[in-house]
Write a protein that binds this DNA or RNA. Structure first.
Lengths: 144, 144
DNA sequence: AGGTTTTGTATCGTGTGCGATTTAATCTTA
DNA sequence: TAAGATTAAATCGCACACGATACAAAACCT
């Protein structure tokens, strides 16, 4: 416990660096489609459930309106999605995929899948990490 | 292997989210000192080895000049560090800690250490994660 | 119903993060 | 040694990411 600072430095940094490497990998895979990594995460969320409000999307992705609003605007102007003010509650914005996003789903996911597979991550490794990162994330989040 | 896309989504997102939670935790711990999380990482690197060039620092932190140059400028104007052009090679910039950074080292690391300890991360968990993240990072980095 | 509070978005300012370009200094090599 | 290549920083443009603030619509409340 006495070298916790050194250790801590390494864990926070390990997560920080790994996230950076993922961003670079996905950026290169997505670049041909004119998508950024965070935009791809938005598409992933919408491919699972379309027509959600900005708030729901933000909760799903852990992003606030300060990040999402301009991002949604960019993606709308690039033809990926469409904003529509809710009829029943004028405060809400519903977000819908456009045809382009539905049509490109397979090529995009195919390309990403191929790219990820070149990393040769073992299934066991994958599952362990998912579990441990989940535990870690909950602990870190719970403390704030 | 057939649900790799779904799994993949979850791993990249798990790393992405965890990094975000760390950022929030550190941001709140460092805010009293007027430091951001990336700036704290710069200090950590310099506390270990002072007087390095911008390039060395960038390699240590995995950051390019487009990120580091303005960050160093901000930290210099906030009194944390000092830039000095190398005498022997005028292209290089050496970066030195200022007194403030040396004096505040203990209070800062103390506060961070306390904050991290509230997460109650087990040593075993910690070491496993460090190892697995290292492996993952190398695999992801190696593929680009 | 009308005032208050809450809620959902939008906007703003600051700080990363990155690829591409630029500039100046150093190194290479013919 | 002078032209060309390489290297180290700086600069630029774009896209997150976040906290704070603003604002309008809806809900709440006697």
């Amino acid at each position: 416990m006495k070298d916790f600072l050194t250790l801590d430095k390494q864990l926070c940094f390990a997560v920080y660096e790994t996230a950076g490497e993922f961003t670079k990998l996905y950026t290169s895979a997505l670049q041909p489609f004119g998508l950024t990594y965070p935009q791809y995460l938005v598409l992933l969320a919408l491919w699972e459930k379309d027509g959600v409000t900005a708030k729901e999307l933000g909760e799903r992705l852990n992003l606030g309106t300060g990040t999402l609003t301009p991002m949604i605007a960019r993606m709308a102007s690039n033809g990926w999605l469409r904003k529509e003010r809710s009829k029943t509650d004028e405060r809400k914005i519903n977000i819908y995929l456009q045809d382009k996003a539905r049509q490109e789903k397979h090529p995009i996911t195919q390309k990403v899948s191929e790219t990820i597979q070149t990393c040769r991550i073992e299934l066991e490794e994958y599952e362990q990490l998912m579990m441990q990162l989940g535990t870690l994330r909950r602990k870190v989040k719970g403390r704030i």
